[in-house]
Design a protein around this nucleic acid. Structure first.
Lengths: 272, 272
DNA sequence: GTTCCGCATGAATCGATAG
DNA sequence: ACTATCGATTCATGCGGAA
Protein backbone atom coordinates (compact mmCIF):
# COMPACT_ATOMS: atom_id res chain seq x y z
CA UNK A 1 0.00 0.00 0.00
CA UNK A 2 1.43 3.32 -1.02
CA UNK A 3 1.77 6.31 1.25
CA UNK A 4 -0.29 9.41 0.46
CA UNK A 5 0.12 12.66 2.36
CA UNK A 6 -1.79 15.88 1.85
CA UNK A 7 -0.94 19.18 3.51
CA UNK A 8 -2.70 22.52 3.56
CA UNK A 9 -0.54 25.60 3.74
CA UNK A 10 2.28 27.60 2.22
CA UNK A 11 4.50 25.04 0.50
CA UNK A 12 7.60 26.96 1.53
CA UNK A 13 6.73 26.24 5.18
CA UNK A 14 5.41 22.70 4.68
CA UNK A 15 8.49 21.71 2.68
CA UNK A 16 10.71 22.53 5.66
CA UNK A 17 9.16 19.51 7.37
CA UNK A 18 10.13 17.13 4.54
CA UNK A 19 13.35 15.13 4.95
CA UNK A 20 16.31 15.99 2.74
CA UNK A 21 17.01 13.95 -0.40
CA UNK A 22 13.87 11.83 -0.17
CA UNK A 23 11.89 12.89 -3.27
CA UNK A 24 12.39 11.20 -6.63
CA UNK A 25 10.26 13.52 -8.75
CA UNK A 26 8.72 16.91 -8.23
CA UNK A 27 6.08 17.69 -10.83
CA UNK A 28 3.93 20.74 -10.52
CA UNK A 29 2.08 23.49 -12.25
CA UNK A 30 2.73 26.56 -10.12
CA UNK A 31 0.19 29.39 -10.22
CA UNK A 32 0.84 31.34 -13.39
CA UNK A 33 1.61 35.01 -12.91
CA UNK A 34 -1.53 37.12 -12.52
CA UNK A 35 -3.68 34.28 -13.79
CA UNK A 36 -7.13 33.44 -12.55
CA UNK A 37 -7.02 36.15 -9.94
CA UNK A 38 -10.58 35.58 -8.96
CA UNK A 39 -9.97 31.98 -7.97
CA UNK A 40 -6.33 31.88 -7.03
CA UNK A 41 -4.07 34.64 -5.78
CA UNK A 42 -1.14 34.10 -8.11
CA UNK A 43 2.08 36.09 -7.82
CA UNK A 44 2.47 39.08 -10.11
CA UNK A 45 4.57 38.73 -13.24
CA UNK A 46 7.29 41.20 -12.32
CA UNK A 47 8.09 39.47 -9.03
CA UNK A 48 7.57 35.90 -10.18
CA UNK A 49 11.20 34.78 -9.97
CA UNK A 50 11.67 36.41 -6.60
CA UNK A 51 8.60 34.54 -5.33
CA UNK A 52 9.51 31.18 -6.85
CA UNK A 53 13.21 30.95 -6.07
CA UNK A 54 12.99 30.24 -2.29
CA UNK A 55 10.54 27.43 -3.03
CA UNK A 56 12.94 26.00 -5.60
CA UNK A 57 15.68 26.06 -2.97
CA UNK A 58 13.60 23.92 -0.60
CA UNK A 59 12.78 21.58 -3.45
CA UNK A 60 16.48 21.27 -4.18
CA UNK A 61 17.03 20.17 -0.60
CA UNK A 62 14.31 17.49 -0.53
CA UNK A 63 15.05 16.15 -4.04
CA UNK A 64 17.35 13.14 -4.39
CA UNK A 65 20.53 13.88 -6.38
CA UNK A 66 19.23 11.61 -9.15
CA UNK A 67 15.77 13.20 -9.03
CA UNK A 68 13.97 15.42 -11.52
CA UNK A 69 11.96 18.64 -11.19
CA UNK A 70 9.27 19.30 -13.84
CA UNK A 71 7.58 22.71 -14.00
CA UNK A 72 4.55 23.17 -16.23
CA UNK A 73 4.22 26.85 -17.03
CA UNK A 74 3.37 29.39 -19.73
CA UNK A 75 3.91 33.12 -19.91
CA UNK A 76 0.96 35.42 -20.45
CA UNK A 77 0.63 38.33 -22.84
CA UNK A 78 1.15 41.78 -21.34
CA UNK A 79 0.33 44.76 -23.55
CA UNK A 80 0.81 42.85 -26.76
CA UNK A 81 4.03 41.08 -25.79
CA UNK A 82 4.86 37.74 -24.23
CA UNK A 83 6.16 38.38 -20.73
CA UNK A 84 9.70 37.22 -20.01
CA UNK A 85 9.34 35.91 -16.48
CA UNK A 86 9.66 32.29 -17.56
CA UNK A 87 12.92 33.04 -19.37
CA UNK A 88 14.17 34.84 -16.27
CA UNK A 89 13.11 31.90 -14.12
CA UNK A 90 15.20 29.49 -16.19
CA UNK A 91 18.25 31.71 -15.91
CA UNK A 92 17.76 32.24 -12.17
CA UNK A 93 17.39 28.50 -11.56
CA UNK A 94 20.65 27.85 -13.41
CA UNK A 95 22.43 30.40 -11.21
CA UNK A 96 21.23 28.35 -8.24
CA UNK A 97 22.97 25.25 -9.64
CA UNK A 98 19.94 23.70 -11.28
CA UNK A 99 20.67 22.13 -14.65
CA UNK A 100 18.14 23.07 -17.35
CA UNK A 101 18.18 19.63 -18.92
CA UNK A 102 15.27 19.88 -21.32
CA UNK A 103 12.24 21.87 -22.35
CA UNK A 104 9.31 19.61 -23.17
CA UNK A 105 6.50 20.97 -25.22
CA UNK A 106 2.93 20.22 -24.23
CA UNK A 107 0.72 20.68 -27.26
CA UNK A 108 -2.79 21.35 -25.95
CA UNK A 109 -4.98 19.81 -28.58
CA UNK A 110 -8.13 21.53 -27.35
CA UNK A 111 -6.94 25.00 -26.49
CA UNK A 112 -9.22 27.91 -25.67
CA UNK A 113 -11.19 29.45 -28.51
CA UNK A 114 -10.82 33.13 -29.17
CA UNK A 115 -9.78 35.66 -31.77
CA UNK A 116 -7.64 38.75 -31.52
CA UNK A 117 -6.42 41.18 -34.12
CA UNK A 118 -2.73 40.33 -33.74
CA UNK A 119 -2.44 36.76 -32.47
CA UNK A 120 -3.95 33.31 -32.72
CA UNK A 121 -4.97 30.94 -29.97
CA UNK A 122 -2.25 29.77 -27.62
CA UNK A 123 -2.02 26.03 -27.99
CA UNK A 124 1.11 25.01 -26.09
CA UNK A 125 2.75 25.18 -22.69
CA UNK A 126 6.26 24.57 -21.49
CA UNK A 127 7.29 21.67 -19.26
CA UNK A 128 10.71 22.69 -17.99
CA UNK A 129 12.94 19.87 -16.81
CA UNK A 130 15.54 20.65 -14.16
CA UNK A 131 18.06 18.27 -12.60
CA UNK A 132 20.82 18.43 -10.02
CA UNK A 133 23.21 16.12 -11.85
CA UNK A 134 23.96 15.22 -15.42
CA UNK A 135 23.05 11.63 -14.57
CA UNK A 136 19.54 11.12 -13.29
CA UNK A 137 16.98 8.36 -13.19
CA UNK A 138 15.22 7.94 -16.54
CA UNK A 139 13.21 4.85 -17.49
CA UNK A 140 12.96 5.42 -21.20
CA UNK A 141 11.39 2.05 -21.98
CA UNK A 142 8.42 2.75 -19.72
CA UNK A 143 6.94 5.40 -22.01
CA UNK A 144 7.38 3.83 -25.42
CA UNK A 145 4.50 4.25 -27.83
CA UNK A 146 3.30 2.20 -30.80
CA UNK A 147 5.02 3.22 -33.98
CA UNK A 148 1.81 3.59 -36.00
CA UNK A 149 -0.18 6.40 -34.44
CA UNK A 150 2.88 8.38 -33.80
CA UNK A 151 2.19 11.92 -34.81
CA UNK A 152 -1.46 11.99 -33.91
CA UNK A 153 -3.33 10.38 -31.05
CA UNK A 154 -0.52 9.93 -28.63
CA UNK A 155 -2.89 10.45 -25.74
CA UNK A 156 -5.14 7.63 -26.79
CA UNK A 157 -2.26 5.26 -27.15
CA UNK A 158 -0.92 6.11 -23.76
CA UNK A 159 -4.19 5.71 -21.96
CA UNK A 160 -4.75 2.39 -23.68
CA UNK A 161 -1.40 1.06 -22.62
CA UNK A 162 -2.27 2.25 -19.13
CA UNK A 163 -5.43 0.19 -19.16
CA UNK A 164 -3.64 -2.81 -20.51
CA UNK A 165 -1.10 -2.63 -17.76
CA UNK A 166 -3.59 -2.17 -14.91
CA UNK A 167 -5.86 -4.89 -16.08
CA UNK A 168 -3.17 -7.46 -16.49
CA UNK A 169 -2.31 -6.96 -12.83
CA UNK A 170 -5.82 -7.43 -11.56
CA UNK A 171 -6.21 -10.44 -13.79
CA UNK A 172 -9.40 -9.34 -15.50
CA UNK A 173 -10.31 -10.51 -18.95
CA UNK A 174 -9.29 -7.82 -21.37
CA UNK A 175 -7.55 -10.28 -23.62
CA UNK A 176 -9.03 -8.73 -26.71
CA UNK A 177 -7.59 -5.31 -26.05
CA UNK A 178 -4.19 -6.69 -25.29
CA UNK A 179 -4.11 -8.61 -28.51
CA UNK A 180 -4.52 -5.38 -30.42
CA UNK A 181 -1.07 -4.38 -29.36
CA UNK A 182 0.72 -7.70 -29.70
CA UNK A 183 3.31 -7.53 -32.44
CA UNK A 184 3.13 -3.77 -32.63
CA UNK A 185 6.51 -2.22 -32.54
CA UNK A 186 7.22 0.26 -29.77
CA UNK A 187 9.35 3.34 -30.24
CA UNK A 188 10.58 6.09 -27.96
CA UNK A 189 8.53 9.29 -27.91
CA UNK A 190 9.91 12.74 -28.59
CA UNK A 191 9.97 15.86 -26.46
CA UNK A 192 6.61 17.02 -27.85
CA UNK A 193 3.62 15.77 -25.87
CA UNK A 194 0.15 15.83 -27.43
CA UNK A 195 -2.52 15.91 -24.74
CA UNK A 196 -5.94 17.49 -24.55
CA UNK A 197 -6.86 19.35 -21.40
CA UNK A 198 -9.48 17.50 -19.41
CA UNK A 199 -12.73 19.35 -19.32
CA UNK A 200 -14.67 17.24 -16.86
CA UNK A 201 -15.81 18.89 -13.69
CA UNK A 202 -12.81 18.96 -11.42
CA UNK A 203 -13.98 21.88 -9.31
CA UNK A 204 -10.58 23.40 -9.91
CA UNK A 205 -9.78 25.85 -12.69
CA UNK A 206 -6.32 24.63 -13.72
CA UNK A 207 -6.69 21.89 -16.24
CA UNK A 208 -3.73 19.58 -16.25
CA UNK A 209 -4.63 16.25 -17.82
CA UNK A 210 -3.72 13.10 -15.94
CA UNK A 211 -1.74 11.84 -18.92
CA UNK A 212 0.85 14.55 -18.33
CA UNK A 213 1.95 13.50 -14.80
CA UNK A 214 1.47 9.85 -15.82
CA UNK A 215 4.04 10.32 -18.56
CA UNK A 216 6.63 12.00 -16.36
CA UNK A 217 6.07 9.71 -13.35
CA UNK A 218 6.60 6.63 -15.50
CA UNK A 219 9.66 8.19 -17.08
CA UNK A 220 11.42 9.51 -14.00
CA UNK A 221 10.41 7.16 -11.15
CA UNK A 222 10.18 3.48 -10.24
CA UNK A 223 7.43 1.78 -8.29
CA UNK A 224 7.25 2.94 -4.63
CA UNK A 225 9.31 6.04 -5.39
CA UNK A 226 8.17 9.32 -3.86
CA UNK A 227 6.45 12.03 -5.96
CA UNK A 228 5.82 15.58 -4.72
CA UNK A 229 3.48 18.27 -6.01
CA UNK A 230 3.83 21.49 -4.00
CA UNK A 231 0.89 23.16 -5.83
CA UNK A 232 -1.41 20.22 -6.17
CA UNK A 233 -4.61 22.05 -7.06
CA UNK A 234 -7.14 19.45 -8.12
CA UNK A 235 -4.77 16.66 -7.16
CA UNK A 236 -4.20 15.29 -10.64
CA UNK A 237 -0.55 14.50 -9.90
CA UNK A 238 -1.64 12.53 -6.84
CA UNK A 239 -4.13 10.52 -8.84
CA UNK A 240 -1.45 9.66 -11.39
CA UNK A 241 0.99 8.73 -8.63
CA UNK A 242 -1.33 6.34 -6.76
CA UNK A 243 -2.48 4.80 -10.01
CA UNK A 244 1.11 3.97 -10.85
CA UNK A 245 1.95 2.67 -7.38
CA UNK A 246 4.11 5.57 -6.28
CA UNK A 247 4.10 7.32 -2.91
CA UNK A 248 2.88 10.88 -2.93
CA UNK A 249 3.07 14.16 -1.05
CA UNK A 250 0.69 16.93 -2.09
CA UNK A 251 0.56 20.50 -0.82
CA UNK A 252 -1.90 23.28 -1.51
CA UNK A 253 -2.38 26.70 -0.01
CA UNK A 254 -6.13 26.54 -0.35
CA UNK A 255 -8.02 24.38 2.12
CA UNK A 256 -10.93 23.94 -0.26
CA UNK A 257 -8.78 22.73 -3.14
CA UNK A 258 -6.80 20.47 -0.84
CA UNK A 259 -10.02 18.82 0.29
CA UNK A 260 -11.09 18.34 -3.32
CA UNK A 261 -7.72 16.83 -4.17
CA UNK A 262 -7.88 14.39 -1.25
CA UNK A 263 -11.40 13.38 -2.19
CA UNK A 264 -10.47 12.78 -5.81
CA UNK A 265 -7.37 10.76 -4.92
CA UNK A 266 -9.31 8.67 -2.39
CA UNK A 267 -12.03 7.97 -4.91
CA UNK A 268 -9.53 6.99 -7.57
CA UNK A 269 -7.73 4.69 -5.14
CA UNK A 270 -10.96 2.85 -4.43
CA UNK A 271 -11.55 2.26 -8.11
CA UNK A 272 -8.18 0.65 -8.70
CA UNK B 1 6.62 39.86 -62.59
CA UNK B 2 8.13 39.86 -59.14
CA UNK B 3 11.58 41.08 -58.30
CA UNK B 4 14.13 38.53 -57.05
CA UNK B 5 17.55 39.54 -55.79
CA UNK B 6 20.31 37.28 -54.52
CA UNK B 7 23.48 38.49 -52.86
CA UNK B 8 26.61 36.68 -51.74
CA UNK B 9 28.37 38.03 -48.70
CA UNK B 10 28.13 38.99 -45.06
CA UNK B 11 24.53 40.01 -44.53
CA UNK B 12 25.61 42.79 -42.18
CA UNK B 13 27.41 44.46 -45.10
CA UNK B 14 24.85 43.62 -47.78
CA UNK B 15 22.00 44.94 -45.64
CA UNK B 16 23.60 48.36 -45.53
CA UNK B 17 22.77 48.64 -49.20
CA UNK B 18 19.06 48.00 -48.66
CA UNK B 19 16.77 51.04 -48.37
CA UNK B 20 15.23 51.85 -45.00
CA UNK B 21 11.69 50.74 -44.19
CA UNK B 22 11.19 48.77 -47.38
CA UNK B 23 10.84 45.18 -46.12
CA UNK B 24 7.47 43.75 -45.08
CA UNK B 25 8.66 40.45 -43.64
CA UNK B 26 12.02 39.07 -42.60
CA UNK B 27 11.97 35.31 -42.14
CA UNK B 28 15.13 33.36 -41.56
CA UNK B 29 16.79 30.45 -39.88
CA UNK B 30 20.12 31.86 -38.74
CA UNK B 31 23.08 29.52 -38.34
CA UNK B 32 22.68 27.75 -35.03
CA UNK B 33 25.48 28.18 -32.58
CA UNK B 34 28.33 25.74 -33.11
CA UNK B 35 26.13 23.58 -35.27
CA UNK B 36 27.21 22.00 -38.52
CA UNK B 37 30.69 23.39 -38.29
CA UNK B 38 31.85 21.61 -41.38
CA UNK B 39 29.41 23.34 -43.67
CA UNK B 40 28.78 26.66 -42.04
CA UNK B 41 30.95 28.76 -39.83
CA UNK B 42 28.30 29.60 -37.29
CA UNK B 43 29.02 31.78 -34.29
CA UNK B 44 29.82 30.04 -31.02
CA UNK B 45 27.09 29.69 -28.41
CA UNK B 46 28.55 32.02 -25.82
CA UNK B 47 28.86 34.89 -28.26
CA UNK B 48 25.67 34.27 -30.18
CA UNK B 49 23.80 37.37 -29.00
CA UNK B 50 26.81 39.59 -29.54
CA UNK B 51 27.08 38.28 -33.10
CA UNK B 52 23.37 38.53 -33.89
CA UNK B 53 22.48 41.91 -32.44
CA UNK B 54 24.18 44.15 -35.04
CA UNK B 55 22.40 42.21 -37.77
CA UNK B 56 19.08 42.67 -35.97
CA UNK B 57 19.79 46.41 -35.86
CA UNK B 58 20.18 46.55 -39.64
CA UNK B 59 17.02 44.51 -40.03
CA UNK B 60 15.22 46.98 -37.80
CA UNK B 61 16.28 49.75 -40.14
CA UNK B 62 15.12 48.08 -43.36
CA UNK B 63 11.87 46.69 -41.91
CA UNK B 64 8.67 48.68 -42.35
CA UNK B 65 7.11 49.82 -39.05
CA UNK B 66 4.21 47.45 -39.70
CA UNK B 67 6.55 44.60 -40.65
CA UNK B 68 7.37 41.36 -38.87
CA UNK B 69 10.63 39.54 -38.13
CA UNK B 70 10.43 35.73 -37.75
CA UNK B 71 13.46 33.83 -36.42
CA UNK B 72 13.43 30.04 -36.62
CA UNK B 73 15.86 28.82 -34.01
CA UNK B 74 16.50 26.13 -31.41
CA UNK B 75 19.09 25.98 -28.67
CA UNK B 76 21.54 23.11 -28.75
CA UNK B 77 22.53 20.88 -25.86
CA UNK B 78 25.86 21.75 -24.25
CA UNK B 79 27.21 19.30 -21.65
CA UNK B 80 23.81 17.88 -20.84
CA UNK B 81 21.97 21.20 -20.64
CA UNK B 82 19.99 23.31 -23.05
CA UNK B 83 22.06 26.39 -23.74
CA UNK B 84 20.46 29.73 -22.88
CA UNK B 85 21.53 31.80 -25.86
CA UNK B 86 18.04 31.89 -27.31
CA UNK B 87 16.60 33.20 -24.04
CA UNK B 88 19.35 35.81 -23.92
CA UNK B 89 18.64 36.75 -27.52
CA UNK B 90 14.98 37.43 -26.76
CA UNK B 91 15.89 39.63 -23.82
CA UNK B 92 18.57 41.48 -25.79
CA UNK B 93 16.19 42.11 -28.69
CA UNK B 94 13.62 43.58 -26.29
CA UNK B 95 16.26 45.93 -24.89
CA UNK B 96 16.76 47.13 -28.47
CA UNK B 97 13.06 48.07 -28.71
CA UNK B 98 11.90 44.92 -30.49
CA UNK B 99 8.55 43.64 -29.24
CA UNK B 100 8.52 39.91 -28.56
CA UNK B 101 4.99 39.47 -29.84
CA UNK B 102 4.74 35.70 -29.96
CA UNK B 103 6.61 32.45 -29.80
CA UNK B 104 5.31 30.01 -32.39
CA UNK B 105 6.14 26.40 -32.01
CA UNK B 106 7.10 24.36 -35.02
CA UNK B 107 6.36 20.72 -34.33
CA UNK B 108 8.63 18.68 -36.61
CA UNK B 109 6.47 15.72 -37.39
CA UNK B 110 9.29 13.56 -38.71
CA UNK B 111 12.27 14.55 -36.64
CA UNK B 112 15.61 12.81 -36.78
CA UNK B 113 15.78 9.35 -35.24
CA UNK B 114 18.23 8.75 -32.45
CA UNK B 115 18.56 7.71 -28.83
CA UNK B 116 20.49 9.16 -25.93
CA UNK B 117 20.67 7.98 -22.32
CA UNK B 118 19.12 11.09 -20.80
CA UNK B 119 16.90 12.67 -23.45
CA UNK B 120 14.52 11.86 -26.25
CA UNK B 121 14.54 13.15 -29.79
CA UNK B 122 14.13 16.88 -30.22
CA UNK B 123 10.95 17.35 -32.18
CA UNK B 124 10.27 21.08 -32.07
CA UNK B 125 11.82 24.43 -32.85
CA UNK B 126 10.95 27.96 -31.88
CA UNK B 127 9.72 30.54 -34.37
CA UNK B 128 10.19 33.82 -32.54
CA UNK B 129 8.03 36.68 -33.74
CA UNK B 130 9.33 40.21 -33.26
CA UNK B 131 7.64 43.45 -34.24
CA UNK B 132 8.36 47.14 -34.01
CA UNK B 133 4.82 48.23 -33.18
CA UNK B 134 1.87 46.72 -31.38
CA UNK B 135 -0.07 47.06 -34.62
CA UNK B 136 1.35 45.24 -37.57
CA UNK B 137 0.11 43.72 -40.80
CA UNK B 138 -1.59 40.38 -40.20
CA UNK B 139 -3.86 38.68 -42.75
CA UNK B 140 -5.49 36.15 -40.47
CA UNK B 141 -8.03 34.98 -43.03
CA UNK B 142 -5.30 33.93 -45.46
CA UNK B 143 -4.18 30.98 -43.31
CA UNK B 144 -7.45 29.52 -42.12
CA UNK B 145 -7.67 25.75 -41.85
CA UNK B 146 -10.60 23.32 -42.16
CA UNK B 147 -12.69 23.00 -39.02
CA UNK B 148 -12.16 19.78 -37.06
CA UNK B 149 -14.16 16.62 -37.58
CA UNK B 150 -15.97 17.27 -34.32
CA UNK B 151 -18.06 19.97 -35.95
CA UNK B 152 -20.05 17.66 -38.18
CA UNK B 153 -21.55 15.71 -35.34
CA UNK B 154 -21.53 18.37 -32.71
CA UNK B 155 -23.40 20.98 -34.68
CA UNK B 156 -26.11 18.68 -36.01
CA UNK B 157 -28.34 18.91 -32.97
CA UNK B 158 -28.00 22.05 -30.93
CA UNK B 159 -29.19 22.10 -27.35
CA UNK B 160 -30.89 25.05 -25.72
CA UNK B 161 -27.65 26.37 -24.25
CA UNK B 162 -25.96 25.99 -27.62
CA UNK B 163 -28.33 28.45 -29.20
CA UNK B 164 -27.71 31.26 -26.74
CA UNK B 165 -24.71 32.82 -25.18
CA UNK B 166 -23.47 30.50 -22.46
CA UNK B 167 -21.06 31.93 -19.92
CA UNK B 168 -18.42 29.77 -18.32
CA UNK B 169 -19.19 28.74 -14.77
CA UNK B 170 -15.61 28.86 -13.63
CA UNK B 171 -15.77 32.62 -13.39
CA UNK B 172 -13.29 33.22 -16.17
CA UNK B 173 -15.76 35.58 -17.84
CA UNK B 174 -15.57 33.31 -20.80
CA UNK B 175 -18.65 32.55 -22.81
CA UNK B 176 -19.57 31.22 -26.18
CA UNK B 177 -22.47 30.70 -28.49
CA UNK B 178 -22.09 27.34 -30.18
CA UNK B 179 -24.63 28.17 -32.88
CA UNK B 180 -22.11 30.62 -34.33
CA UNK B 181 -20.18 27.68 -35.70
CA UNK B 182 -23.01 26.27 -37.77
CA UNK B 183 -22.06 26.18 -41.43
CA UNK B 184 -18.49 27.17 -40.74
CA UNK B 185 -15.92 25.42 -42.88
CA UNK B 186 -12.71 27.23 -42.02
CA UNK B 187 -11.33 28.27 -38.65
CA UNK B 188 -8.25 30.14 -37.50
CA UNK B 189 -5.15 28.10 -36.70
CA UNK B 190 -3.25 28.14 -33.41
CA UNK B 191 0.35 29.06 -32.62
CA UNK B 192 1.45 25.43 -33.00
CA UNK B 193 2.55 24.57 -36.55
CA UNK B 194 2.71 20.93 -37.63
CA UNK B 195 5.08 20.54 -40.55
CA UNK B 196 7.28 17.66 -41.58
CA UNK B 197 10.88 18.45 -42.40
CA UNK B 198 11.78 17.96 -46.03
CA UNK B 199 14.46 15.42 -46.57
CA UNK B 200 14.82 15.64 -50.33
CA UNK B 201 18.10 16.32 -52.05
CA UNK B 202 18.69 19.99 -51.48
CA UNK B 203 22.46 20.05 -51.24
CA UNK B 204 22.14 22.20 -48.17
CA UNK B 205 22.06 20.95 -44.58
CA UNK B 206 19.67 23.36 -42.86
CA UNK B 207 16.25 22.81 -44.29
CA UNK B 208 13.02 24.12 -43.06
CA UNK B 209 10.10 22.92 -45.15
CA UNK B 210 8.54 25.28 -47.66
CA UNK B 211 5.28 25.18 -45.73
CA UNK B 212 6.87 27.16 -42.92
CA UNK B 213 7.75 30.32 -44.89
CA UNK B 214 4.56 29.88 -46.93
CA UNK B 215 2.53 30.13 -43.74
CA UNK B 216 4.27 33.23 -42.45
CA UNK B 217 4.43 34.96 -45.84
CA UNK B 218 0.69 34.50 -46.34
CA UNK B 219 0.02 35.68 -42.82
CA UNK B 220 2.25 38.75 -42.68
CA UNK B 221 2.43 40.04 -46.26
CA UNK B 222 0.24 40.95 -49.22
CA UNK B 223 0.92 40.26 -52.88
CA UNK B 224 3.93 42.20 -54.22
CA UNK B 225 5.23 42.88 -50.72
CA UNK B 226 8.94 42.43 -50.10
CA UNK B 227 10.33 39.44 -48.17
CA UNK B 228 13.93 39.18 -46.95
CA UNK B 229 15.96 36.18 -45.83
CA UNK B 230 19.45 37.24 -44.68
CA UNK B 231 20.60 33.61 -44.27
CA UNK B 232 18.87 32.05 -47.22
CA UNK B 233 20.76 28.76 -47.33
CA UNK B 234 18.93 26.52 -49.76
CA UNK B 235 16.63 29.35 -50.75
CA UNK B 236 13.42 27.86 -49.39
CA UNK B 237 12.12 31.26 -48.31
CA UNK B 238 12.72 32.56 -51.81
CA UNK B 239 10.83 29.70 -53.38
CA UNK B 240 7.88 30.33 -51.08
CA UNK B 241 8.00 34.06 -51.83
CA UNK B 242 7.98 33.76 -55.64
CA UNK B 243 5.31 31.09 -55.46
CA UNK B 244 3.09 33.49 -53.57
CA UNK B 245 3.83 36.45 -55.83
CA UNK B 246 5.98 38.39 -53.39
CA UNK B 247 9.24 40.18 -54.13
CA UNK B 248 12.32 38.69 -52.52
CA UNK B 249 15.82 39.52 -51.37
CA UNK B 250 18.06 36.63 -50.34
CA UNK B 251 21.54 36.81 -48.85
CA UNK B 252 24.05 34.10 -48.08
CA UNK B 253 27.66 34.17 -47.03
CA UNK B 254 28.51 31.08 -49.01
CA UNK B 255 28.84 31.44 -52.76
CA UNK B 256 28.07 27.78 -53.33
CA UNK B 257 24.82 27.84 -51.35
CA UNK B 258 23.80 31.10 -52.95
CA UNK B 259 24.21 29.52 -56.36
CA UNK B 260 22.12 26.55 -55.29
CA UNK B 261 19.43 28.85 -53.93
CA UNK B 262 19.31 30.88 -57.14
CA UNK B 263 19.10 27.74 -59.20
CA UNK B 264 16.27 26.32 -57.11
CA UNK B 265 14.29 29.57 -57.17
CA UNK B 266 14.76 29.92 -60.91
CA UNK B 267 13.65 26.37 -61.53
CA UNK B 268 10.62 26.81 -59.30
CA UNK B 269 9.70 30.02 -61.09
CA UNK B 270 9.73 28.24 -64.43
CA UNK B 271 7.36 25.62 -63.13
CA UNK B 272 4.76 28.12 -61.97
C1' DG C 1 -20.10 -5.11 -22.83
C1' DT C 2 -19.82 -1.66 -26.51
C1' DT C 3 -20.84 2.19 -29.34
C1' DC C 4 -23.13 6.40 -29.97
C1' DC C 5 -24.43 10.85 -29.03
C1' DG C 6 -25.31 15.06 -26.29
C1' DC C 7 -22.98 18.54 -23.92
C1' DA C 8 -20.26 21.30 -20.34
C1' DT C 9 -15.89 22.92 -19.95
C1' DG C 10 -11.33 25.24 -20.15
C1' DA C 11 -4.09 29.28 -16.93
C1' DA C 12 -7.35 34.17 -22.88
C1' DT C 13 -6.78 38.82 -24.93
C1' DC C 14 -8.09 43.21 -26.81
C1' DG C 15 -10.41 47.54 -27.22
C1' DA C 16 -13.72 50.61 -25.43
C1' DT C 17 -15.48 52.85 -21.68
C1' DA C 18 -15.49 54.55 -17.11
C1' DG C 19 -13.24 56.32 -12.84
C1' DA D 1 -1.97 59.93 -18.39
C1' DC D 2 -2.85 55.94 -16.00
C1' DT D 3 -5.69 52.13 -14.08
C1' DA D 4 -10.00 49.23 -13.49
C1' DT D 5 -13.87 47.01 -15.38
C1' DC D 6 -16.69 45.13 -19.05
C1' DG D 7 -18.16 43.21 -23.46
C1' DA D 8 -16.81 40.79 -27.71
C1' DT D 9 -14.42 37.36 -29.89
C1' DT D 10 -14.30 31.83 -30.94
C1' DC D 11 -12.79 25.22 -30.79
C1' DA D 12 -12.14 20.68 -29.71
C1' DT D 13 -12.37 17.31 -26.42
C1' DG D 14 -13.47 13.79 -22.74
C1' DC D 15 -17.11 12.35 -20.00
C1' DG D 16 -21.37 10.27 -18.88
C1' DG D 17 -25.76 8.61 -19.93
C1' DA D 18 -28.47 6.30 -23.36
C1' DA D 19 -29.21 2.94 -26.86
Amino acid sequence: MNKIENYVGDCLQILKGVDSETIDLVITSPPYADARKKQYSGPCADKYVEWFLPIAEEIKRVLKPTGTFIINIKEKVVSGERHTYVLELIQAMRKKQWLWTEEWMWHKKNCFPGKWPNRFRDSWERCLQFNLQKKFKMNQDSVRVPIGDWAEGRLKNLSKTDKQRDNSKSGSSFGKNVSNWVGKKLVYPTNVLHFATECGNKKHPAAFPKSLPVFFIKLFTDKDDLVLDPFEGGGTTGIAAVELGRNYIGIDLDEKYSAIAQERIKKHLEQL
